[in-house]
Design a protein around this nucleic acid. Structure first.
Lengths: 246, 246
DNA sequence: CGGAACCTTGATGCACCTCAAGCATGGTGG
DNA sequence: CCACCATGCTTGAGGTGCATCAAGGTTCCG
């Protein structure tokens, strides 16, 4: 349950190299020159394995580094004082986790692995110095933070003014789009999260998520077998999101 | 209720000095040395007046600068393709507007003045170069972006799992806390936005916002006269937020 | 093979939305 | 300066989308 900063028994003999990583076009190094990439390689020197259910960090933990998802799948969760929880995002390969920690030097959410995963550790102090040196890195980092803000505003729109079907349709389209950018099929996906986690993210109860999946299936938009989803009619999903279907 | 630090009887849109601004402890310059502050003064050289109802920028506009609220009050609004709108935030003196634009070089929301206001323009390219030079400025800027992310996550929690009374109570407590940080009373405030705008922000209809205000008044928690709000029992509001009152 | 975690589906209730009507406020022009 | 009108606010009555409660089914794994 507690985070292990240096996994004791696991030898990370592999030197992690951004320059050799197949995610470099999606991750922090986008657009860097070869020189700059080599400096990144120095900074991002540790990879950490996280088992399903384990957390990279918890709310309240001191902030020291960002984490880039190398393989696997994560959720971030904020908690209210009364125990209510809200999933604020799902992160897949190439995405950055931990930006929340910069503001107060402590993390404000939990980052939990939804399957066995690996993350690359990016010591924050070093990122700041390196991005003073490399304009492109600096700009790319700012873009990533800004993108998170824009994404959050989209979620607010979803939570504030969409109905259950619209929320789930938007969620599925977003997931497939990101999976597609990583070379996966646009029409078949395996959900890494439970109905309850989807519900938490979308501001719905798990029963409503389940019913909505069933409804989409009845309508021939999806084929749903537990966590295996096949999208039969993407355009129909798009229409649902736009409210053009009710 | 509007604060005017230096009543601008002349055209003062010329020279702005962060170093002389009473908001410098809340705004971008937090923690800078005198030297650094002077460089900021060079960068933030234009102030712009915005009349009530006007926008600093619209969704789709090219991104070139950030704006620090000098006086007045703003809302930011994102729109879906079908016309649905969501207020994503309300900004007051010392707060930064426009961070959304970095991600795609275009703004993704509208920033609308809710009263006659003034903003300081911070050319983004210059901010990037200056923050390559000044570590503290760089860090402060990152903190501001991160804070926005954390705030957004809090709004998601609110939208995803709180009921109407809890949302409004949380909203009022947040407003008064920010006003208090600016030297205003913690118990009396004048709302700069309509019930509809509050509702949009909180994911509620204006009638629900109005009814909830009335309910708080009946319960002796607030005194509500249109946009004049007096908080009679702050602890009760806090209890409502925590769900300890239902 | 048995239990835990997860998912589906049905019945019922309620929080909030929708629709509607009337009141308050403030800006504007005669 | 006042009358007028647009905009915003309040309140009521009724409807509905989703939550809640409940029961049973499926899958995974020790």
């Amino acid at each position: 349950m507690t985070q292990e900063t240096a996994p004791p028994s696991r030898l990370e003999a592999l030197k992690v190299a951004c320059s050799a990583c197949n995610l470099r076009e999606l991750c922090l190094p986008v657009g860097l020159t070869d020189d700059e990439m080599l400096s990144l390689d120095d900074m991002v020197s540790t990879r950490r394995s996280v088992k399903r259910g384990e957390s990279i960090f918890h709310a309240g933990d001191p902030f020291a580094a960002l984490y880039a998802v190398r393989t696997g799948f994560f959720k971030t969760v904020v908690s209210a004082s009364d125990g209510r929880e809200q999933v604020t995002g799902f992160q897949m390969a190439g995405e950055l986790i931990g930006l929340d920690g910069i503001s107060t030097d402590r993390h404000s959410c939990d980052a939990v692995a939804l399957e066995d995963s690996q993350v690359c550790m990016i010591p924050y102090g070093q990122l700041e110095s390196l991005s003073r040196e490399f304009t492109l890195l600096q700009h790319q980092f700012h873009k990533i933070m800004s993108r998170e803000i824009v994404r959050d505003h989209g979620v607010m729109l979803l939570l504030g003014s969409m109905r259950a079907e619209e929320r789930l349709a938007a969620f599925l389209l977003n997931l497939t789009q990101r999976l597609q950018a990583r070379g996966f099929s646009a029409s078949a996906l395996v959900l890494r999260m439970t109905r309850e986690e989807i519900g938490s993210y979308l501001g719905l109860k798990l029963e409503t998520v389940s019913r909505t999946f069933s409804k989409f299936q009845e309508e021939g938009i999806l084929e749903v077998k537990q966590r295996d989803i096949r999208i039969i009619e993407q355009s129909a999903l798009q229409r649902v999101v736009n409210g053009t279907s009710a």
